[in-house]
Amino acid sequence: MSAETTPPFFDGHNDLVLKILTGKATVENVVQGYDSGHIDLPRATAGGFAGGFFAIYVPSPTDRAFRMEEMSKPSYDLPLPPPVPHAEAAPFAERGFQVLAELEQAGAIDICRTVAELETAIAGPRMAAITHIEGAEAIGPDCAELEGMYARGLRSIGPVWSRPTVFAEGVPFRFPSTGDIGGGLTEAGKLLVRECNRLGIMIDLSHLNEKGMDDIAALSDAPLVATHSNAHAVTPHARNLTDRQLRQIADSDGMVGINLASAFLRPDGRMASDFGLDVLLRHLDHLVEICGEDRVGLGSDFDGALVPQDIGDCAGLPNLRAAMIEHGVGPELMTKLTHGNWLRVLRKTWVE
């Protein structure tokens, strides 16, 4: 590795599995490299992208072109998609587990179940992968599937994407807005939190509304983690976290991963990539100020979002490192922000 690619970035969220499931990429593309998307093994090596949380996500039938057009306006409020039935989500999620197994068999990733495995895998040459479920529709209200998924490698779960589930409510893509929209956890949601705590599965707060986060903060005995969310004080988007929420995370000794999605970075909330990394650094500064330097990292949303043009894909991460160094981030803090803080919070969360 060169100075441009060290220390390596470990990332809080990507949607590579969905690209494969929807036919926009193949396992072979990821191993050999291709000219689309944000992640493949050659670009990861070139950019010092050590891996991250690989999301299994069941998509809603939405019009992406319409969503992008709406989110380019000065303000917008996209309605929440309807719930996804368990009978539809479960087989789709099963295919996601299969894709991760195929990626590992092909030599693209190492699926990590312990922090020791993660520390080894971050050094390469494959990408380190944590199996994550984004939106718990594939799990029934009695959480009966959870232990079996844990045995297959599941170590992180978000109760919601931006839609309702039997567990909780997600926030809409709304700007300007807070995330104080809708009710808190259902009884099934409270059971999910207790079962995740028992097994040592990390609970992801990204996409969850404020009341749901408050309920988890009151109930969970694990650090509060938002894998891919930004500072509401910089960009007042419903998907971003207010200072009160950030203090909840800090008080729990938790973690926030900075989301590279343009609409959640830009102060004007627009989904457009033509802006400098100084905007991202404003979020970094605010998150470090409120949460502390041990509780912030990267949560890119690669392969699921329009990212800043100065990054482009995972091969562009040296540009982010250079911007952070110029901003005054020294070697010790750089190691924390790139991957050390993720290792720290997982040591406190996983049962090993």
Rank of each mutant, 00 (worst) to 15 (best):
residue 126 R to W: 00
residue 179 G to F: 09
residue 113 R to P: 02
residue 113 R to S: 03
residue 93 A to I: 07
residue 79 P to D: 03
residue 108 A to W: 02
residue 144 A to W: 01
residue 178 T to K: 04
residue 82 P to Y: 03
residue 138 A to G: 14
residue 165 T to S: 14
residue 171 V to H: 08
residue 80 L to F: 07
residue 75 S to R: 03
residue 120 T to H: 11
residue 146 L to Y: 06
residue 101 A to S: 15
residue 129 A to W: 04
residue 168 A to E: 14
residue 175 F to G: 08
residue 172 P to H: 02
residue 130 I to N: 11
residue 90 A to L: 11
residue 116 A to Q: 14
residue 143 C to R: 14
residue 140 G to R: 11
residue 183 G to K: 14
residue 81 P to Q: 13
residue 109 I to E: 07
residue 137 E to D: 15
residue 85 P to W: 10
residue 88 E to F: 01
residue 109 I to Y: 06
residue 79 P to G: 00
residue 93 A to K: 09
residue 80 L to T: 06
residue 113 R to T: 00
residue 127 M to K: 10
residue 158 G to T: 06
residue 177 S to I: 02
residue 132 H to W: 10
residue 99 V to A: 11
residue 170 G to Y: 08
residue 150 Y to N: 05
residue 145 E to H: 11
residue 169 E to Y: 13
residue 96 G to K: 01
residue 85 P to S: 15
residue 171 V to E: 02
residue 76 Y to V: 05
residue 182 G to F: 06
residue 89 A to N: 08
residue 98 Q to F: 09
residue 182 G to V: 05
residue 138 A to V: 14
residue 111 I to D: 09
residue 174 R to S: 09
residue 179 G to A: 12
residue 75 S to A: 07
residue 110 D to Q: 03
residue 140 G to D: 13
residue 143 C to F: 11
residue 134 E to N: 01
residue 143 C to N: 15
residue 101 A to G: 15
residue 101 A to F: 10
residue 139 I to K: 04
residue 157 I to C: 05
residue 85 P to L: 13
residue 182 G to K: 00
residue 173 F to C: 05
residue 118 L to Q: 13
residue 175 F to E: 00
residue 92 F to N: 05
residue 110 D to C: 07
residue 154 L to G: 00
residue 73 K to L: 07
residue 175 F to K: 06
residue 101 A to Y: 08
residue 87 A to F: 02
residue 106 A to E: 00
residue 174 R to Y: 08
residue 182 G to M: 02
residue 86 H to W: 01
residue 102 E to K: 13
residue 73 K to I: 04
residue 99 V to G: 10
residue 81 P to S: 14
residue 87 A to V: 01
residue 164 P to L: 14
residue 128 A to I: 02
residue 76 Y to R: 03
residue 139 I to G: 03
residue 161 W to T: 04
residue 132 H to S: 14
residue 164 P to C: 15
residue 151 A to I: 00
residue 102 E to S: 15
residue 98 Q to H: 12
residue 160 V to P: 13
residue 112 C to L: 02
residue 126 R to C: 01
residue 148 G to A: 04
residue 183 G to I: 11
residue 111 I to N: 08
residue 73 K to Y: 01
residue 75 S to H: 10
residue 75 S to L: 09
residue 78 L to R: 01
residue 136 A to W: 07
residue 98 Q to C: 12
residue 114 T to I: 02
residue 96 G to H: 01
